[in-house]
Design a binder for these strands. Sequence first.
DNA 1: GGTTAGAGTTCCCTGACGAAACCAAGGAGG
DNA 2: CCTCCTTGGTTTCGTCAGGGAACTCTAACC
Lengths: 161, 161
Amino acid sequence: MQRTRFSEMACSIARTLDVIGEPWSPLILRDVYVGINRFDQLQQDLGISRKVLSERLKWLVDSEILTRVEYSSKPPRYEYGLTARGVELCDLLLVMVRWGDRWLAGAEGPPVLYRHHACGQISHVEPRCAVCAEPMRATDIDVLPGPGMAGHQEMGPAASK
Amino acid sequence: MQRTRFSEMACSIARTLDVIGEPWSPLILRDVYVGINRFDQLQQDLGISRKVLSERLKWLVDSEILTRVEYSSKPPRYEYGLTARGVELCDLLLVMVRWGDRWLAGAEGPPVLYRHHACGQISHVEPRCAVCAEPMRATDIDVLPGPGMAGHQEMGPAASK
DNA sequence: GGTTAGAGTTCCCTGACGAAACCAAGGAGG
DNA sequence: CCTCCTTGGTTTCGTCAGGGAACTCTAACC
């Protein structure tokens, strides 16, 4: 019995979820982003089984999210780094942080703060329109079929909001 | 043997992933957002098993992402809607769309387009700083321990980038 | 009564995850 | 030389989540 193949859906959300739609990959991405980039460090920081970590790392490298770089050849030793698409995927993490801080942090407040270089303030990301730079939330948009929708009938959100 | 409890980690990303860190919940969220909000519609659109759909819907309602509203009492009939926190979680979907369109759409182009009400253009979200409105990407920030980090040693990304 | 619609629930099997043990290839130190 | 440590895995076995298919319940309609 086959697991659902999200990569074959005519939906960018589903395709993205095919790459990163389980908890460990985003958390590994986050660790690599903050500089925790070796196998044992990752395993200890995340408390993940070595087996799952090994599989996830391979998946992320094969998906071109991470690079695997040999930092010592005798004996062979490896570090992981972000690719360009991996760096862009970190945007997703920042949005998760904002949502988690807002709704799940409780009275303790956020465990991690993010200081924006440009303004020097502790801040969160806000989604804005890439064209006009005004806020662009789910309630601010119409959803239309795109060129990649031809030939696909399922996952067909042609409905206008 | 217990699955890892991401909700107990001192990390907003992990906590968010505890709520929505598998593929079906974000896809259900998306469907409800575009107006596909009844059981059979969801099941058909997503091609998900009725069992998993039922479980995921219950989870999302219990997590206060979705509401379950009776639209007919004889016989009982239900629709699902977004809560305020559910609407905010849709930001995550828009970021997924942007990444998926950019890296996974291939030659066909994006399956779905998003038109921003304010400027009327087909657009994508761009993460910007909530304080100064300048772009705020993963490469634009320092990561610091926050108030919710006290008493937690694991998941401790105090490293400054 | 039979059929349809809507919203699930149950059962059995498969695939992913978790714990623990094990493995290989080196380097460092005695 | 041998032992221990480090690094980066791999293997095994049991648990948990997902998938397919069948089933259930409550109504409305003919």
